[in-house]
C-alpha cells in the first residue's frame, strides 16, 4: 500500500520559540493517528503545519496526490493547495464556527464543498446534502436553517458532514469533541468512528483527551515541549507507556 502522507523532520519555530521540532512519520490510507499532549506541547502547531494552514520553518509534508504521487504540499501553487484542502482533505476545527459558514444555511454549508469539486445540478446537490445530514443524524427538516440556530453538538456534526461530503482521503481534526457535554461527545465519537472506518478515511486527530484516542486512533504520538517523546500502537502506548511524561499523562486520568 502507498503512503498517503510522508512527514519528514517537520519543524516550526516562532522566532526563538519552538512550536514543534523534527517530527517525522508516515500515514497510510485508512489509518487514524492521534496526537496527544498537554496545552502548549505543540500539537496544534503540528496539525496546522500538516494541514497546510501554517508553513513549516523546515522539513517536508508530502501527500500522495491523485495524479502526481507523493508531492511536497509547499511546492504546490497556492490555488492547487487550496483545491487539495477543499476536496481531497477535510479539516474539522475545534470550534465549529471556524469550520462552518455561519451566514448560509446548513444545506449550503454541505453543498458548497460539492460545488468546489464541480457539482452544478441543484437537485443533486440538495439530495446529497440531505443524505449527509441524515448520516450525521441531523433532521433533514433543518436543511434551510442557519447553523447559528443549531446546538453545539449539531454544529459539530454539520461541520463533519461538510468535510466528508467530497469523500476526502485525509481528514484533520483539532479537538473535535472538546467543549461538548459528555453524552453529546459519546454520540459524536461513535459517529466519527463509524464514518471513518466505513469510508476508509485516514485521520489525524489532535486531542488532550486520552479516552478519545483510545476509541478512535490506531496509533498515537505523544508530544511534549514541541518534541515527540513516544509513539506506537494506541493500546500499547496507553497500557504500557515507556516515557516518564506518557506515564504521567496516563496516570493522571480521573477514574469514573
Amino acid at each position: 500500500m502507498n503512503k498517503l502522507l510522508q512527514v519528514h523532520d517537520l519543524t516550526k519555530t516562532y522566532g526563538a520559540r519552538t512550536g514543534c521540532a523534527n517530527v517525522s512519520f508516515d500515514l497510510y490510507p485508512g489509518e487514524v493517528l492521534g496526537i496527544v499532549g498537554e496545552s502548549g506541547s505543540g500539537k496544534t502547531t503540528l496539525l496546522r503545519c500538516l494541514s497546510a494552514q501554517l508553513e513549516p520553518s523546515a522539513g517536508t509534508v508530502a501527500y500522495d496526490m491523485r495524479v502526481k504521487g507523493l508531492t511536497d504540499i509547499w511546492s504546490l501553487s497556492e490555488p492547487e493547495r487550496r483545491m487539495l484542502t477543499r476536496t481531497d482533505w477535510g479539516i474539522v476545527h475545534q470550534n465549529a464556527r471556524d469550520g462552518l459558514r455561519m451566514e448560509v444555511s446548513a444545506g449550503a454549508n454541505v453543498g458548497e464543498r460539492l460545488m468546489a469539486v464541480g457539482a452544478r445540478h441543484y437537485g443533486n446537490i440538495r439530495t446529497e446534502a440531505e443524505d449527509w445530514l441524515t448520516k450525521v443524524e441531523i433532521d433533514t427538516g433543518r436543511i434551510d436553517d442557519l447553523p447559528a440556530s443549531f446546538s453545539g453538538g449539531m454544529q459539530q456534526r454539520l461541520q463533519i458532514a461538510r468535510n466528508l461530503v467530497t469523500q476526502p482521503r485525509l481528514v484533520f481534526m483539532d479537538e473535535p469533541t472538546s467543549g461538548l457535554d459528555v453524552s453529546v461527545q459519546a454520540r459524536l465519537l461513535d459517529l466519527i468512528r463509524t464514518l471513518v472506518s466505513r469510508l476508509g478515511i485516514a485521520c489525524v486527530i489532535v486531542t488532550h483527551d486520552l479516552g478519545v484516542v483510545r476509541l478512535l486512533a490506531h496509533r498515537l504520538m505523544v508530544m511534549r515541549r514541541g518534541q515527540v517523546v513516544e509513539q506506537g500502537l494506541t493500546d500499547q502506548v496507553l497500557d504500557d507507556p515507556q516515557h516518564a511524561y506518557t506515564q504521567l499523562l496516563v496516570s493522571s486520568i480521573l477514574p469514573v
Binding site: L233, D235, Q236, D239, D240, Q242
Partner: peptide, 9 residues
C-alpha cells in the same frame, strides 16, 4: 499474554 498480543512492549 499482553506481550504476545503486543499490548505490552
Amino acid at each position: 499474554m499482553r506481550c504476545i498480543y503486543a499490548n505490552y512492549l
